[in-house]
Amino acid sequence: MNIFRLAGDMTHLASVLVLLLKIHTIKSCAGVSLRTQELYAIVFATRYLDIFTSFVSVYNTFMKLVFLGSSFSIVWYMRYHKAVHRTYDREQDTFRHWFLVLPCLVLALLIHEKFTFLEVLWTFSLYLEAVAILPQLVLLQRTRNIDNLTGQYIFLLGGYRGLYILNWIYRYFTEPHFVHWITWIAGLVQTLLYADFFYYYFLRFIGGRGVE
């Protein structure tokens, strides 16, 4: 564990807590894409299958349970909780996210580190996570300006993988044989997809306006 990875995990945890805070306290998911949340639930479900077979550390297992529990409960809230579901913007959240799942699965079957069931699903979860934010970014452009909590959620979600890139650089220079091209490229693509959002997000900080 290094400071970059810890900062990345804490940023990721913060993004999930901000979203849960928004949905649980003000009972609103306005501006939040259910489709992105569904993709993230699949990402964690396919990435953490080894939670039962391989024990890394208490921290690792605990965080996996937190991410699994929060992603599925957010989907449940947005789908079935009466008050929250009412604030869900169904007409605008129309990105065909299921079209993202199949190509990621095919790609994982073609490009992976090891051809085993767990490894292919783990690789699939990496590819899927790289594009999971797309429905949310499309929704963002349709609903003109968003509230601060949603903006902070997306900012933290984009930032965590950026910190992971620093973690990979650090591990590359400090651990022999630490080379994971698939993870690095997927993480880089994922972070680059936020570039446009980061630009407007920082403009907001400088200009003090809402996220246009």
Binding site: R5, D50, S54, K64, F67, W122
Partner: peptide, 10 residues
């Protein structure tokens, strides 16, 4: 660290 091949990152 973790057994070879397992992923130790989240």
């Amino acid at each position: 660290d973790t057994p070879k091949g397992f992923h130790d990152e989240l």
